[in-house]
Design a binder for these strands. Structure first.
Length: 820
DNA sequence: ATAGGGTTAG
């Protein structure tokens, strides 16, 4: 009996007695009044005491209510002392009394006390529940068991089932539920093991369980084997096959299958159509998806929220936001209401179009309609803030998201934030967020690692990048081509080509399958550094190892030859592209054109333009800017007008780079008013000037001695909060030095430091050099001291310049500032 | 069972 067990097994037995004290006082003589306060008092239980917990008391206890008893303080104190064997004993005894009681006891231990049950007691209760057809409860406790046991537990469970429960009538149901749950929990091997055992024991396998197994195999070639094994197929079976075929990129087969099974019992379901629509949308064939939507209607079926959302999403991705909105607006008429997903899709659609304010409106409407934004909604918002460069706002939002409860999916908003921080160079904050994630139990995944590694590499922080790369490998998160690409790209951009190549070779030697992108990055790295020999050698490795080059591979080689000014060879590479069965791209032509444009060879540029046209390759904005640059270099401005006309004929407007090119040309021919006219024009056209635009104008003003204008220009830009680059300042600083207005030079230089620009020895050197030449020794000294105070040591160049100016030299020697 | 969020060489 439970009471006897409690008396015999618990060290805290004294506490148990008190709930019954009132009961006991009337029935027996012993008192428990003080025992609670004195837990160490040893209590001697004689056989008399044990007798107190006899049938009669158990009976009374039941009358009093186990529930009250077990919820009492006294029982709670006992739970930590419960052992598996005790529970099983109690369960056994309770079973004899009443199965319901034992089930209740079992569940109470789990729900109230978080107790971990043995396999045996769980299976025992499972059989009771199965016999009573209490399937929901059965599912809950078996799921609980499987979570605790983990993968690979099927063997032991099957052993136990067939040895101890074979006689139970309900055992088949327990087996089947176990099969269903292992399959649904993606414990594929366990589910297959159970399935085999069930077949051996000739137990019935439910369609639900089979469907779940089929679902796990839907993306593999075992799909049909599994399908054929199922005797009692239902709607789910068919829709799973349809979905599987869709995911295997076999939409046509899916459609055929759907048509065939129309003749069988149930007819096609909306779910199957949804899978097919989703597939066509992903292939970019929204119109086909739409026609299936019509088919659904024609079949007399009702498109679900899913159907609508799938199509709305397809339309958004295809850029047809108007049509997407229209469809969403018609949902109510079809008897379905837009849900959070619908609004998220629309919000993302606007985000893709860069219409951030509309993203806001969509979310507002969603809230107005009483729907709650979810993690995904917030993630889209977060993307928007990051895209607008509002990193601090993003950080606040992320904090807000995370404080709403850490879901497993919260890794994604963190990744968005990581990406935002990395892109704005705030790598330290990215790293601390990364650590914070780990500390909060959010395990960074492949994407999160890749983003941070990419960010580190871009800044040349390779030690840390390699460290994280190793860490992710150790955590069995396998780097993919992008992660590796980030490492290679970073190394190449820092000019560390030997290291990049060593890394690439190490990947080859460890047997990783390398895709062409990784080779392309290193080939491009060689080409950009003017190492055409190495680029060609690696290209040879590519072709010899059976990897197919892409146009990008050849484009890098073209660039490489252009870089070393061997345009002839570059041209030969262009012609060679077709020999590999590839088509030259706009980049191929533009790169070559750029080489000709740089030396003002407009005839060659024109030739290439004609060739492009003949090949049916459309010029890009970049191509046009190169053509215009060529004309500017050659001084044929009148022809620029012609090209600009061609552009507008094609519906293209010149981009910022093109404007910059022409503005630079106007500056170079001293027509500053024309230059500023163009500057105003580009603003009128809603083209944001780039930092380079300001630099060009600033340089132009300074070059022709309009320094006061340049000062005013800088001031007004600062007032407008324009994003200026360091160059705008240094140009002006140099001009003031040359002109002999060191005060202004100092003023601007201090601003440069104030605004947190990375001021290097080159910048100090440029100023000191010019000041010394103008014999402005005191100012030169000032900058020299400033440099030292910022922790920068003078190099040989600066010392040489300073020494030449004898006054300064004496000062340096005197102050002992010269390095060894 | 079917829908929505994060990385991306030139």
């Amino acid at each position: 009996m439970i009471c006897r067990w409690i008396v015999l097994n618990s060290s805290k037995v004294s506490r148990i007695l008190s709930p019954f004290s009132s009961l006991l006082s009337s029935k027996s003589s012993f008192s428990v009044a003080k025992l609670d306060d004195e837990p160490n008092t040893s209590t001697n239980f004689s056989s008399d005491h044990r007798d107190c917990f006899d049938q009669e008391i158990l009976f009374d206890m039941k009358n009093l209510g186990f529930r009250e008893y077990l919820h009492g303080q006294h029982f709670r104190g006992l739970v930590s002392d419960l052992r598996q064997t005790h529970v099983e004993d109690v369960m056994g005894e309770l079973m004899a009394e009443s199965p319901d009681l034992s089930v209740w006891f079992f569940k109470e231990l789990i729900d109230v006390y978080g107790f971990r049950h043995s396999r045996f007691s769980t299976l025992l209760v499972s059989h009771i529940l199965a016999a009573q057809r209490r399937f929901n409860e059965l599912q809950v406790i078996l799921q609980h068991l499987l979570q605790e046991e983990g993968s690979g537990s099927a063997y032991l469970l099957c052993e136990l089932l067939s040895s101890s429960f074979r006689e139970w009538d309900s055992t088949g149901l327990v087996w089947d539920m176990l099969l269903f749950l292992t399959s649904r929990s993606k414990m594929v091997d366990d589910s297959l093991y159970i399935l085999e055992k069930m077949k051996d024991l000739k137990l019935n396998v439910s369609t639900q369980a089979y469907n779940s197994i089929l679902y796990n195999f839907r993306q593999t070639d075992k799909l049909w084997d599994m399908y054929r094994e199922i005797d009692a197929k239902n709607e789910h079976t068919y829709s799973t096959v349809v979905d599987g075929l869709c995911r295997q990129q076999r939409v046509e087969d899916a459609v055929l299958f759907l048509r065939d099974c129309e003749w069988e019992d149930v007819g096609p379901s909306v779910v199957s159509f949804n899978s097919i629509m989703s597939s066509y949308c992903k292939l970019g064939l929204v119109d086909t998806a739409k026609s299936f939507f019509c088919t659904v209607l024609k079949c007399g079926l009702v498109p679900s929220v899913y159907s609508h959302n799938i199509l709305i999403n397809g339309l958004c991705v295809a850029g047809s936001i108007g049509e997407a909105l229209e469809l969403a607006g018609h949902m109510s008429q079809r008897g379905v209401e837009p849900d959070t997903v619908t609004y998220n899709i629309l919000a993302k659609g606007f985000h893709l179009l860069g219409m951030i304010s509309s993203v806001w409106e969509v979310i507002q409407e969603m809230v107005d309609r009483g729907l709650s934004p979810d993690v995904i909604t917030y993630t889209i918002l977060l993307c928007g803030y990051c895209q607008l460069g509002n990193i601090d706002k993003s950080l606040r939002l992320l904090k807000d998201i995370l404080s709403r409860g850490l879901e497993l999916s919260s890794v994604i908003p963190c990744s968005v934030m990581l990406s935002g921080l990395c892109k704005t160079g705030r790598i330290d904050e990215a790293l601390s967020l990364f650590y914070e994630m780990k500390a909060n139990g959010l395990r960074p995944d492949l994407v999160a690692y890749s983003i941070v590694i990419h960010g580190l590499c871009r800044l040349g922080e390779f030690d840390m990048a390699v460290w994280l790369y190793d860490e992710m490998c150790n955590k069995r998160i396998h780097p993919n081509s992008r992660t590796r690409g980030a490492m290679l790209l970073g190394l190449c951009q820092k000019g560390m080509l030997l290291e990049a190549r060593a890394f690439l070779d190490s990947l080859v030697s460890t047997g990783s399958t390398l895709d062409i992108i990784l080779y392309n990055i290193v080939i491009d790295g060689y080409a950009k550094s003017g190492c055409i020999e190495e680029a060609l050698e690696l290209f040879k490795v590519v072709t010899e190892s059976g990897v197919t080059p892409t146009v990008a591979t050849f484009n890098s080689l073209i660039y490489g030859y252009c870089k070393i000014r061997n345009i002839g060879e570059a041209r030969k590479i262009l012609d060679g592209i077709k020999l590999y069965g590839l088509v030259p791209s706009a980049v191929s032509y533009t790169t070559l054109m750029n080489a000709y444009a740089n030396c003002g060879n407009t005839e060659r540029v024109d030739d290439l333009r004609r060739e492009m046209k003949a090949e049916g390759i459309s010029p890009t904005d970049f191509t046009y800017s190169v053509m215009i640059k060529g004309l500017c270099v050659a001084g044929k401005l009148e022809k620029c007008e012609e090209v600009l006309r061609d552009m507008s004929d094609e519906g293209k407007t010149p981009d910022q780079i093109t404007y910059n090119t022409v503005i630079q040309y106007q500056c170079s021919v001293k027509d500053l008013s024309k230059a500023f006219e163009l500057f105003e024009e580009m603003k009128l056209r809603n083209l944001d000037p780039t930092p380079a635009t300001y630099n060009i104008l600033m340089d132009g003003l300074c070059l022709y001695g309009y320094i006061e204008d340049a000062d005013r220009f800088l001031c007004s830009l600062q007032e407008q909060g324009v994003d200026l680059s360091k160059f705008a300042y240094t140009t002006l600083i140099k001009a003031h030095c040359v002109k002999g207005d060191p005060e202004m030079a100092v003023k601007h230089f201090l601003q440069l430091l104030d605004r947190g620009f990375d001021v290097t020895i080159r910048d100090y050197s440029a100023v000191i050099n010019r000041l010394c030449r103008r014999r402005l020794a005191n100012e030169a000294k000032f900058f020299f001291s400033l440099m030292l105070s910022r922790g920068i040591s003078p190099d040989l160049d600066i010392c040489r310049v300073m020494i030449k100016s004898s006054d300064v030299a004496a000062w340096i020697f005197k102050s002992g500032l010269l390095p060894d």
